[in-house]
Design a protein around this nucleic acid. Sequence first.
DNA 1: GTCCAGGTCGCGC
DNA 2: GCGCGACATGGA
Length: 302
Amino acid sequence: MPNNHRLVIDPPQPFDFHSTITSHGWAVLLPNAYNPETNSVIRVDPLPSGKVAHLNIGSDAEKSGGQITVDVQTARPLNQGDERFILNSVRHMLRLDEDYSGFYKLCRKKGGAWKNLLAGKGRMIRSPSLFEDLVKVICTTNIQWGGTKRMVGELVDVYGKPFDPDPALKTFPEPESIAGDAPEVFKTRVNLGYRAEYIHGLAVNIAEGSFSLDDLKDESVPTAEVRKKLKSIKGIGDYAAASMLMLLGRYDEIPVDTVFRDFMSQNYFDEGAFDPKAAVEMYADWGEWKSLAYWFEMLESE
DNA sequence: GTCCAGGTCGCGC
DNA sequence: GCGCGACATGGA
């Protein structure tokens, strides 16, 4: 008999739940799933106690600003440590502790459509763990979105921990789980193409402790150093590093990829005249908020 | 069948 | 520091 438990979080103000979970594709990359009817994100996660939990992260209010609800389902009752872990995890995913006042200040100054962001937009959903975000970002390079979903889905299916009441639902793999297979075996169990050795290598390095994710999370470390550390990971180049920096809450660098090229070409350049340096330069006055400004300008224009 | 994707690597200059 | 081909895989 599964155990159900509801956790409630009061978000900071302003806060737009729907904008946060739909701010990019992460909400539909396994183990995440988006339920448009309830406007919630579902996901399965391992807990410190060893249990596996099914989370339904939603917001009770129709409008932004409402309480965040986390409906947790587990095979056996949660203990306090698990509960705290889930709350921290959701806070991290939704970036409830990130300060956007500097960004909003610039939006107010710019006026016009930028004011639409003041109602609590600007948050981009991320994964509970940096390993998951790194793997997912690597899986967005040199491939279409459908391919990203397939590869991430295979990883979850083969290396994730099943959720007892419904074993088809699985967690995102721990580095140890992937590192437990030899690289040759890993390659045959999931079809990741040339990315297989990048992801397996990263998992091994993290599992062995030779690559520390804590350095990346350290807010006192200058962005240039974090960037360098990110780029030392095989498979993480300029675009992926800039994307990871965004997920880490550092917005000084714009990820230049086909999405950026297409958006900028269409809106700011004559046919075929796109110039990446000039395009990036257009966001110079956003200072430490450049990539966030670009991203939400693009979302708002859709 | 052929092309190529939310790029990156490793090489040669 | 810059240009360029190779890169696995499966969907378009």
